[in-house]
């Protein structure tokens, strides 16, 4: 009985996924000449691996906030912020050689960070020890801000996984175009979904 229900659900799910129009949001375009030129210059050094790591660390340094904020939003009791932070870095590192500059580097980082956090493939106690973050969010926020941060976190945490991604990108002041690229829905649907999330948040804060 349970198995039949499971098979039925899976079949329904399969057909519904096939009907979603992913609208070529994920197409990787040919590399831009400037980007590849920069990369090749850097790789021609005596120690390309070390240089590649340094280049990657610089990239992380410049965009650490994105990773930190996404992992903060998606951290829960099972997955700590440190766990997610580390997992995002590993996935960024694995995808770094394939990045060809077809979109803004921030868009690429948002996509990987959100995809990593949303997938929750990491098990709570498995894997190597997480990178200890030198500061946690409560240390960064000053004391009078703490209640605001906690309220903000509590509100966002009540949203569903994709809603969280949309609202995070919205409060990060990303354009509808960028949100649609990262999340994988059309621009008009971003507006519809944002309107619904706003209503939902309003209702939640009234309650």
């Amino acid at each position: 009985m349970i198995f039949c229900k499971f098979v039925k659900t899976l079949a329904e799910f399969d057909s519904s996924i096939k009907s979603i129009n992913f609208a070529n949001h994920c197409n990787i375009q040919p590399p831009s000449a400037t980007n590849m030129g920069e990369k090749q210059n850097n790789m021609s050094s005596k120690n390309p691996d070390r240089l590649r790591k340094q280049e990657f660390l610089d990239l992380l340094d410049d965009n650490k906030n994105i990773i930190y904020k996404v992992s903060f939003i998606y951290s829960n009791t099972l997955h700590t912020q440190d766990d997610l932070f580390q997992e995002v870095i590993i996935n960024l590192w694995n995808s770094w050689p394939k990045f060809r500059g077809d979109c803004k580097v921030q868009t690429w980082i948002y996509r990987i960070a959100l995809n990593t956090c949303i997938s929750s493939l990491r098990k709570s106690k498995s894997g190597p020890q997480s990178i200890p973050l030198t500061r946690n969010i409560e240390m960064i926020a000053e004391e009078y801000d703490l209640s605001k941060i906690r309220e903000l976190y509590a509100l966002i945490n009540k949203l569903e996984k994709i809603e969280k991604a949309i609202i995070l990108l919205y409060i990060e002041e990303k354009s509808h175009d960028e949100i649609s690229q990262i999340v994988g829905i059309s621009k008009s649907n971003v507006a519809v979904k944002l309107f619904r999330i706003k209503e939902k948040l309003k209702m939640m804060s009234q309650n």
């Binding site: 990787i28 694995n94 995808s95 949303i118 996984k161």
Partner: peptide, 22 residues
């Protein structure tokens, strides 16, 4: 992680997890 949109990735991950439970 670098090529899929959020919805696409979530759908694939959910499918994988359902198969594992299945």
């Amino acid at each position: 992680f670098d090529r899929c949109s959020t919805i696409e990735l979530l759908s694939r991950v959910t499918k994988y997890k359902l198969l594992t439970k299945g």
